[in-house]
Design a protein around this nucleic acid. Structure first.
Length: 825
DNA sequence: AGCACGCCGACT
DNA sequence: GTCGGCGTGCTC
């Protein structure tokens, strides 16, 4: 083991350690003799940083270059025997930090599950499963365990005092592995596999069903048992086992009946572990043959993969792209390889998981933001051990894949693949392409509405392109109608957000027993409440926006920071009693619907109704089982929902999307309207889509109407070309923040001046953004528009760093924060 | 991100 | 006089 290092043991060995703090680069520590044989790149080490803080850092590099200018501290301990992070992950981190202009520490914070990041703040608890068995523990382990059985909670510092030692992380690690203790983060939600009670035939009925009439004889005297038997026969025909609750429901019997039948040797009752996210379900129609289109697409994708690493699968909504993914996934798994399937976060709660779990069963694991810390670590380990399929949102990119063969990025165009807020501000779709390159695996980007960037890459032959222009099963795309809301407003007497046509269509659909989805891209009741007399509107105390009225809570709320306040009775500016609501959000639509359709069951799906844990799943389920007639929602209703009985989809205001002052508003509008339209009329019937707009002449509307993506693309790409936007140029958005507007302005002027000296006309700004103050901080934006080659990118980032330091070293400006966002959306 | 140091105004 | 506010700089 150690022989390898003997020849360099005479010189000092150093490690560069990534720390989970916002420092610009890894820090160098020396490796004491004792650890030299055990330290490996990717393992976590315990180090002291600053006055008296201890952190678990990650070894990025091992070398013997003595740092100049300071004496390195020693690493205090090695936490892992085996590296936590493999070489490819480290490479990915490096690429992300470099490309997206952030620190390795920031990437590490995003990448590692909380439970793999120990800091001295962590509190330690005794596991409830610990059975007071102290056998086989080391002295240190014994002391900690004993202390915990008296106190129940210890800080890392307490433990340090108890053991009278400085380095204790290895003791903690081993106690966690022994499942004697757990850390504070694990307290919030302890992972327990979910179990359901199940029923199956006992022998001999299991293998010899013809003997079942004997079972009927045994139950002859009991009506309930006979009923249970009949239901079981029906259900067990198609399933290996069934849930007890299904029998309770369908046969109207209780547990006692089944117990009695178990005694008679008819049933076998047992517990089955199932995934929390569904998994167990009755029918399975993946057995259907592939359509001709799917067969062709599959063949084209595979051919394309021979020469291209990345392929775009452009298939209309309902064309059956998922089925194509599944075929590819199965092939990869059959070869013993791993597959990563990325989805936008919100689509993860929906039906796709259930569908994939039905097919892949235990081979699939799901990783998303609502998992507990312990579950995350569980999945992390599973991936390391070669779990075949990982399904999840963008953070899945960070899992420790060993033999990744295929990456699927579903809904490739979705903007939630881009992380905005804390660095790293990465785009998971683009990062996936790089991850694919690292693993020499294939990347499939799938969508009904490709992003301009991706389609351009395909057109340029950088990516392969496979088209699926028809819906599965010969179903027609929904019929789309655009209604001139301005014209309609002239003829109708009442003020409402519904045109006569939309109301009529909804009415007809409800009468036919169909369901409807209404899309309004704004939540709350009304975006602002304004005084009729003087025009005053309540603004947020922290942000530069007017507050949105939420009727349900009878409050005004800020959508940027969450600040809320009661609405005033009179105008504070002029005392007028007349306060009017302006604009409309999902809440108001829901309210108005209740007036038009008092008997219809209306539900709302937006951030406000979905934030609690199971709310989204409940709404989806209720809609699926027709307990909801009309579903009103924001963007959320456009993502990955498959319902079979939707007769009408309504877009209440196309203008709000298309009129947005951003060069991507056309693209966004095309995607949003096409996607929401795709929710209409699946299964057997053609659905109808009604789009209301004031400006019916907008070209995107015509292109959506005729489902003419190529036309839309050609028009859009020539505009992008004319105005020097992506994909022809690369954008970097810089955001400067400070709590004093004057300081911010002065600092920004200096910043802009210095940056322009270096990058010339490529700098636009400083500009006051749409929301110029957020959470008490004033904001100014710069936009860098530059040539696409890597040379310029690295020069720009060097310049940004330099100018940032220059500005921050100026007196008074050191608190001005600079956020870098490469490829902003 | 913490944490200490140091420079200012507001107090027992 | 000192207490404590916060702006500034450093951490291998």
């Amino acid at each position: 083991m150690g022989e390898l290092f003997h020849h360099i043991a005479s010189t000092e060995t150093y490690v560069d350690v990534i720390l989970p703090v916002a420092v610009p680069k890894p820090y160098t520590y020396y490796v004491p003799e004792d650890f030299i044989n055990d330290v490996v790149v990717g393992c976590r080490v315990e180090v002291s940083f600053g006055r008296n803080k201890l952190y678990s850092g990650l070894v990025a590099n091992i070398h013997n270059n003595t740092p100049s200018g300071h004496t390195p501290k020693p690493i205090l301990n090695i936490i892992d025997k085996k590296p936590t992070i493999n070489q490819k992950q480290l490479k990915l981190w490096g690429w992300m930090a470099n490309y997206y202009g952030c620190t390795l520490g920031e990437v590490m914070n995003a990448a590692l599950p909380a439970n793999l990041k120990l800091t001295s703040e962590t509190r330690v608890y005794l596991s409830p499963t610990f059975d007071e068995n102290f056998d086989g523990l080391s002295d240190d382990e014994y002391l900690v365990t004993e202390a915990l059985s008296i106190q129940n909670e210890l800080s890392i510092d307490d433990i340090r005092k108890i053991l009278n030692k400085k380095t204790i992380y290895s003791v903690i690690r081993s106690l966690i592995d022994l499942q004697i203790i757990f850390l504070k983060e694990e307290l919030q939600e302890k992972y327990k596999p979910k179990q359901v009670s199940c029923v199956d035939w006992a022998e001999p009925y299991k293998s010899e069903p013809q003997k079942l009439n004997k079972a009927f004889d045994l139950c002859q005297k009991s009506e309930k048992q006979t009923r249970a038997l009949m239901v079981a026969m029906q259900l067990l025909k198609d399933n290996d086992f069934i849930q007890r609750s299904d029998i309770y429901k369908k046969a109207d019997v209780d547990g006692g009946v089944l117990k009695a039948m178990e005694k008679k040797g008819i049933f076998r009752l047992f517990k089955q572990t199932i995934s929390r996210l569904g998994g167990y379900s009755e029918d399975l129609n993946e057995a259907f043959d592939l359509s001709a289109q799917q067969v062709r697409a599959l063949a084209e994708i595979e051919t394309s993969f021979e020469t291209k690493n990345t392929v775009l699968l452009h298939g209309v909504t309902g064309s059956g792209k998922t089925r194509v993914y599944i075929e590819l996934m199965q092939k990869a798994i059959a070869e013993g390889k791993q597959v990563l399937y990325l989805l936008p976060e919100i689509a993860l709660t929906s039906q796709i998981i259930t569908r994939l779990q039905k097919i892949f069963g235990d081979e699939i694991a799901v990783y998303h933001s609502r998992l507990s810390n312990q579950e995350r670590v569980e999945i992390w380990r599973a991936v390391k051990e070669g779990k075949s399929v990982m399904l999840g949102a963008r953070s899945c990119l960070f899992l420790p894949f060993e033999k990744l063969d295929l990456i699927i990025v579903d809904e490739e165009h979705d903007t939630s693949y881009k992380q905005h807020d804390p660095a790293p501000r990465y785009n998971a779709r683009d990062t996936a392409v790089y991850l694919g390159h690292l693993h020499k695996s294939k990347v499939l980007l799938g969508t009904a509405t490709p992003s301009i960037e991706t389609y351009y890459n395909a057109k340029q032959d950088k990516y392969g392109l496979v088209e699926m222009p028809e819906r599965f099963g010969g179903l027609q795309l929904p019929k789309m109608v655009i209604i001139d809301a301005k014209e309609d407003a002239k003829v109708r007497q009442k003020h409402t957000h519904f045109t006569t046509k939309l109301i009529e269509a909804l009415k007809a659909a409800l009468e036919r027993g169909e369901q409807a989805i209404l899309f309004q891209n704004r939540r709350g009741y009304a975006p602002s409440m304004r005084c009729v007399t003087c025009g005053w509107a309540q603004e947020c105390t922290q942000c530069d926006v007017t507050l949105t009225y939420h009727k349900f809570k009878d409050q005004l709320q800020c959508h940027y920071c969450g600040y809320s306040t009661q609405l005033p009775k009179t105008c504070p500016a002029c005392g007028s009693l007349e306060l009017n609501l302006h604009g409309f959000g999902t809440e108001k639509i829901e309210d108005e619907l209740k007036i038009y359709f008092p008997d219809a069951k209306v539900a709302r799906m937006d951030w406000d109704t979905v934030k609690s844990k199971n709310a989204l799943a409940t709404i989806i389920n209720d809609f699926e089982e027709k307990r909801i007639d009309i579903l009103v929602g924001t963007q959320m209703v456009t993502k990955g929902l498959d319902f079979e009985n939707v007769g009408i989809v309504g877009v209440l205001s196309a203008d709000q999307i298309l009129q947005f002052p951003d060069f991507r508003s056309g693209e966004r509008g095309f995607q949003l309207i096409t996607q929401v339209a795709g929710r209409a009329g699946r299964k057997h019937k053609q659905g109808t889509v009604i789009v209301q707009a004031m400006n019916v002449a907008h070209p995107v509307l015509a292109e959506v109407l005729s489902n003419d993506f190529p036309k839309f693309y050609e028009r859009e790409i020539s505009e992008r070309h004319a105005f020097n936007y992506p994909p022809f140029m690369r954008l970097i958005k810089l955001t400067l923040k400070h709590k004093k507007p004057s300081t911010l302005n002065d600092a920004a002027r200096l910043f802009g001046y210095e940056l322009q000296k270096r990058l010339d006309y490529r700098i636009k700004g400083p500009a006051v953004p749409y929301v110029s103050r957020v959470r008490g901080q004033y904001v100014l934006d710069f936009l860098i528009k530059m040539e696409k080659d890597a040379k310029w990118l690295s020069k720009a980032k060097r310049d940004i760093l330099e100018v940032t330091h220059l500005m921050q070293s100026e007196r008074g400006y050191s608190n001005v924060r600079v956020n870098v966002d490469v490829d902003p959306l």
